[in-house]
Design a protein around this nucleic acid. Structure first.
Lengths: 359, 359
DNA sequence: TTGAAAGCGCTAACAG
DNA sequence: CTGTTAGCGCTTTCAA
């Protein structure tokens, strides 16, 4: 037990001043080897650890980053969370979690601000932009992850996202060149920037191939809703889509299950399905989902750098809206373009970057 | 912008003392309505929020709970995380995340202790018990979630887990009465308490039916390793298991995919598969996994109460090791006992509690 | 109910 | 390199 061992206790035991103890525990401050040793011995004997709250009170930095999420069932978010926590740990930061699915949450702002987090990563695609704005106004750096501010909102907020439009376009082109002629789309949350961009890119891509969306449903980024949308879209046996782009992998799994189990359709022989995100499950044997990858690690890296820039600069730097290129991940859930077919089928899965190839 | 608005600023604007401001922001402290109104107006005008670090410095409580996890790919952990964060939020606590897969992590202890968390939930099944012990020694309440201390370790640490043994037993009994005679087992991490208990229960259940484990593999709670274990276990086409219990759902998905896709086996006609956890994906159409549920919400509730008791008491209460009963969730991945077969097959899924039935 | 004063544990100036 | 001093923003006695 060491209830409340303070730096002063350590100082006394080591027969040095309190400041010496502080220095010994602050990397980069100069202390003689001998003094440091005495201090560390004393600290160990007493079980002393610096109090992060007291430190943050005076330094003005908490070394805590707030992460705001709305739900975790879609594995994309746990992946983001894990990646972010690991990345921040390297820089000595920690993640304080805020889970909130209430779109307009004033009290959430209060909570975040009370902890004096050094920055916020907002990865809840359905949360109002107002939250980000309020935090930014309070002087806290905010990075929107996998989303952008609603139109017209202030430009003090940065964002990192993957290239949703290019992804939608690549998927459209892939389906079109695969010979599909009745291509459906199942949307996520229709107001979300992710869905808007993916759908726009998809429409553009189809248009370039002389096609348009043949059928459209809304899944709201929800498993059950996506299932219902798919069932409805494929209800009429005579005039079905021959392919669907589902706006997230998580919904795509629901769609694949519905198509196969409820409707007895074979994928990709009777219908092709493609998704977006490339979550780990997309590679699972039951799905082998062709999808567009969101490169989480580079996105996190970019977000952390944005935050770091804020913390380093006196003046808040201008907001940036970063777009990280992703890549098309070809697996087995969609019929392949004729040319690529034979070649790719014999390999396990293929990656084709929309902005050039990666090894 | 409100860089550093303090309670003193608010006090001056509201023409009251700093203490009055403090009281106004502390639920349950007495302030006159008039004074409170003036203070709140001033606070709003200034954009003031109390500084949680300063508060914690003097109260000795941070209202932060540390959650230690090792990885999130198994959806069980995101579910736990989300449930815990939501539950704690109700009591005004927040979750500080520590992701760590290094089994013996002294510096992790340092990090946790520096933040003066009010309690720790340790849900990393592979992390050494030493971590928990050190935190407990430092006077911080620790609750082990879904695991227990290694044998012989101190008893100052509480734990909450589901009834792994009963689960293993129920699963064994279910498979045995389903007419299976060559029953395999794929273990998780062999040192983990979860695996030990599940395996023990499973062996007991088989023994009660006059059987023993026919084949055994190790999946280490890892997707790829489980796949390999399954492939190896089923390599000899002539003498295969007719059922497998896989120690976690997450591994069970890998096993099902391997069995179906690589070996062309039909589930449950040629082989039955059962898992443990009942993660959301177990209900997905491609798997429809029969499994034993870990009742996360009650487990979290129990964990939070344990923590609350610590915080309320002066003397740390005696450690408790709580076991929360779970239930068998019958779906379609395993052949049913003959009697139950016809009845259950026509419904979507069945729940049979090991300690009596639930609606 | 309210205010004045003290101090939580630490770091940052500044001298030496 | 080291110590002294002051004070981060808050809550808490204690008196009034």
């Amino acid at each position: 037990m060491n209830p409340g061992v303070t730096s002063l206790d350590v100082a006394r035991l080591a027969r040095v001043s309190q400041s010496a103890v502080s220095r010994a525990f602050t990397p980069g401050r100069s202390v003689s080897d001998e003094t440091r040793r005495r201090i560390m011995d004393a600290a160990r004997a007493l079980g002393y650890r610096p109090n992060a709250h007291a430190r943050s009170l005076i330094t003005g930095r908490s070394r805590i980053i707030g992460l705001v999420l709305s739900y975790l069932e879609n594995l994309f978010y746990p992946v983001v969370l894990e990646e972010l926590a690991r990345r921040l740990k390297r820089d000595g930061f920690h993640v304080l979690l805020f889970i909130n699915d209430n779109p307009n949450a004033d009290e959430l702002v209060d909570e975040i601000l009370q902890y004096r987090v050094d920055g916020i990563v907002l990865a809840a695609s359905t949360l109002s932009s107002g939250l980000a704005q309020q935090c930014a106004n309070a002087g806290i750096p905010v990075v929107l992850f996998n989303r952008i501010m609603a139109a017209g909102a202030a430009r003090a907020v940065s964002s990192v996202r993957s290239d949703n439009e290019a992804g939608g376009r690549a998927l459209a082109q892939f389906l079109a060149s695969g010979g599909h002629r009745r291509i459906g789309f199942i949307a996520g949350n229709e107001e979300s920037s992710t869905n808007l961009e993916r759908e726009r890119g998809f429409r553009d891509g189809l248009a370039a191939a002389g096609q348009r969306i043949w059928a459209r449903g809304v899944g709201n980024y929800d498993f059950a809703a996506a299932r219902r949308a798919a069932l409805e879209m494929f209800a009429r046996a005579d005039d079905r889509p021959d392919a669907v782009f589902v706006a997230s992998d998580h919904m795509a799994f629901a769609v694949m299950d519905a198509l196969r189990r409820d409707l007895g359709l074979s994928i990709p022989d009777e219908v092709s399905v493609v998704g977006f995100d490339n979550v780990p499950q997309a590679d699972w044997g039951s799905y082998r989902l062709t999808t567009y990858e969101q490169p989480v690690a580079p996105m996190i890296e970019a977000a952390v750098r944005l935050l770091a820039r804020f913390l380093a600069d006196q003046e808040p730097p201008a907001a940036e809206n970063l777009v990280i290129p992703g890549s098309l991940i070809v697996r087995d859930s969609a019929r392949l373009p004729a040319a690529a077919g034979a070649a790719a089928r014999s390999r396990g899965g293929r990656r084709a970057t929309s902005t050039g190839n990666r090894p």
